[in-house]
């Protein structure tokens, strides 16, 4: 891939095939941690951090470990272990060397192991046959799309708090319907094809 193609792939991953609104990866943190805009931003940045690094590491694991030994059917197990170890490692590293960043991201990090956005971006890299640079760029773009979605949605939810819906729609159903409306806005990008 040349530079233009990579840019195009990143644009597609952020807006057209947004992880939340068109592919449904990472819905749990999207619904769970989006009640305040600043915590949403913290979660988004933590996810971006982990996905970008894990894209690089899982690419290396797949290329140098699984493929040479013909173990690629074990990729789900291998990737989830790599991700769990990586999250643990990043947490320890941040606590020791960048305490200010740890203080703002720390509480979100353990949740990320079970965030399906991380595992699915690693698996998508393999499925699409991306090289090292493409994998990292795709991971970065996909997680930026996640961050965009969760921050925008936190803004919407801040306004929803003053709403007075019918009793059975209070809480989760109202949140889901608001997410549906936002997804409709993002569906507009699906017309953008190159």
């Amino acid at each position: 891939m040349n530079f233009g193609e990579i840019l195009l792939m990143m644009f597609t991953a952020i807006l057209v095939e947004n992880f939340i609104f068109s592919r449904f990866y990472g819905i749990c943190p999207f619904l769970g941690v989006s009640s305040q805009p600043d915590t949403a931003l913290g979660m988004g940045l933590a996810v971006t951090f982990v996905i970008t690094i894990s894209s690089a590491v899982t690419w290396a694991v797949y290329e140098f470990l699984l493929l040479p030994f013909e173990l690629d059917f074990l990729k789900t197990i291998a990737f989830i272990l790599v991700i769990a170890a990586l999250v643990q490692f990043i947490e320890m590293f941040l606590r020791k060397f960048i305490p200010s960043l740890y203080a703002s991201l720390g509480i979100y990090l353990p949740l990320i192991t079970t965030n399906c956005a991380v595992l699915s971006s690693a698996l998508l890299n393999v499925q699409n046959g991306y090289g090292f640079i493409e994998s990292v760029c795709f991971g970065l773009a996909a997680s930026l799309g996640f961050t965009l979605a969760i921050v925008v949605f936190a803004g919407v939810r801040a306004r929803l708090r003053d709403a007075k819906p019918p009793k059975s729609f209070e809480g989760f159903p109202l949140t889901l319907i608001a997410a549906g409306l936002l997804a409709m806005a993002f569906a507009g990008f699906s017309g953008v094809r190159f």
């Binding site: 449904f24 109202l174 889901l176 997804a183």
Partner: peptide, 21 residues
């Protein structure tokens, strides 16, 4: 479409909450 998934699930859960209450 994806937007329909969110809206449908929202209505289904609202119906369940109504029944439960």
């Amino acid at each position: 479409l994806p937007c329909g998934a969110f809206v449908t699930l929202g209505f289904v859960i609202a119906a369940v909450q109504k029944l439960r209450s």
